[in-house]
Simulated scan of single mutants.
Amino acid sequence: MPEIAWSDGRWTHPPAASVERDGDLLVTAVEGSDAWRITSYGFVHDSEHALLAPFPDGSAVEVEFTAAFSDQFDQAGVFVRVGAERWIKAGVEFADGRCQLGAVVTDGLSDWSLAPVPAWVDRRVTVRVSRDGTAVTVRAGLSGEDLQLVRVAPFAAELDAQAGPLVCAPTRSGLQVPLHRWRTTESDAGLHP
């Protein structure tokens, strides 16, 4: 699976700091960084730190990071962007006192799904997003273990999209997330093994 160099991506919004160390990219988020559109909360947040590269139909992207989270809404994962009102974020988020595996799919308005994964705190996690024709498929798991299905969302083949690592810190300063790998490969062969 080919690695994508950190230098091959472009930030949607630059983080407070990003430093390469021993192959990892250590990303320090700006306080208040997040991505959300309107639903339930009434606000628009368009300040996420997403390092993006082209994401053509028929491909998949994987991001590996350590979920070193402790404050409300600390998060990292994969961001897929078509435009300001159409995007997906998927990964691990610290919500309501524990790590949660989730996805936000936005097409004008955001939705949000979560499932608790408390054992993932301070562990290496891999999030994979695969694009194939009519959908994106999100999978995630502890690195080195089988990935579980998280979400299937509609996504037309003709959409011009970019994807890559995401880090956000909506409620605090000082969140630093080590990103370990950013890879690309062909899309998944199917939804189920």
Results as ranks from 00 to 15, higher is better:
residue 3 E to S: 15
residue 8 D to Q: 15
residue 10 R to M: 12
residue 12 T to W: 06
residue 13 H to G: 03
residue 14 P to L: 08
residue 14 P to C: 06
residue 15 P to V: 04
residue 19 V to H: 14
residue 19 V to A: 11
residue 20 E to T: 15
residue 29 A to Q: 06
residue 29 A to Y: 09
residue 29 A to D: 05
residue 31 E to I: 12
residue 32 G to Q: 07
residue 32 G to S: 09
residue 33 S to M: 05
residue 33 S to A: 08
residue 36 W to S: 00
residue 39 T to R: 15
residue 42 G to K: 03
residue 46 D to Q: 15
residue 46 D to W: 11
residue 46 D to M: 11
residue 46 D to P: 12
residue 48 E to H: 03
residue 51 L to V: 06
residue 54 P to S: 12
residue 56 P to A: 04
residue 56 P to C: 03
residue 57 D to R: 07
residue 57 D to L: 09
residue 57 D to E: 13
residue 60 A to D: 09
residue 61 V to E: 08
residue 63 V to T: 08
residue 68 A to K: 13
residue 74 D to K: 09
residue 74 D to P: 14
residue 75 Q to V: 01
residue 76 A to F: 11
residue 77 G to N: 02
residue 81 R to S: 11
residue 82 V to R: 02
residue 83 G to V: 00
residue 88 I to L: 15
residue 88 I to T: 14
residue 89 K to D: 03
residue 90 A to E: 00
residue 90 A to I: 03
residue 92 V to Q: 00
residue 95 A to R: 12
residue 95 A to C: 14
residue 95 A to G: 08
residue 96 D to G: 15
residue 97 G to F: 10
residue 97 G to M: 04
residue 99 C to P: 05
residue 100 Q to V: 07
residue 102 G to R: 02
residue 103 A to Q: 09
residue 103 A to Y: 03
residue 103 A to F: 03
residue 103 A to M: 08
residue 106 T to H: 05
residue 108 G to A: 10
residue 111 D to E: 10
residue 112 W to Y: 00
residue 115 A to F: 06
residue 118 P to K: 02
residue 119 A to S: 13
residue 119 A to I: 02
residue 121 V to G: 07
residue 122 D to R: 03
residue 124 R to V: 04
residue 135 A to P: 09
residue 136 V to W: 00
residue 137 T to N: 07
residue 139 R to N: 00
residue 140 A to N: 11
residue 141 G to M: 04
residue 144 G to H: 06
residue 145 E to H: 05
residue 148 Q to C: 08
residue 149 L to F: 14
residue 150 V to M: 06
residue 151 R to A: 06
residue 154 P to G: 07
residue 154 P to W: 05
residue 155 F to V: 13
residue 157 A to H: 08
residue 157 A to I: 05
residue 158 E to K: 09
residue 159 L to S: 13
residue 162 Q to H: 14
residue 163 A to C: 12
residue 164 G to Y: 01
residue 166 L to Y: 07
residue 170 P to D: 02
residue 172 R to I: 08
residue 172 R to L: 03
residue 172 R to K: 09
residue 174 G to P: 10
residue 176 Q to A: 07
residue 176 Q to Y: 00
residue 177 V to D: 05
residue 178 P to N: 03
residue 180 H to Q: 12
residue 183 R to C: 13
residue 185 T to P: 00
residue 190 G to T: 10
residue 193 P to L: 05
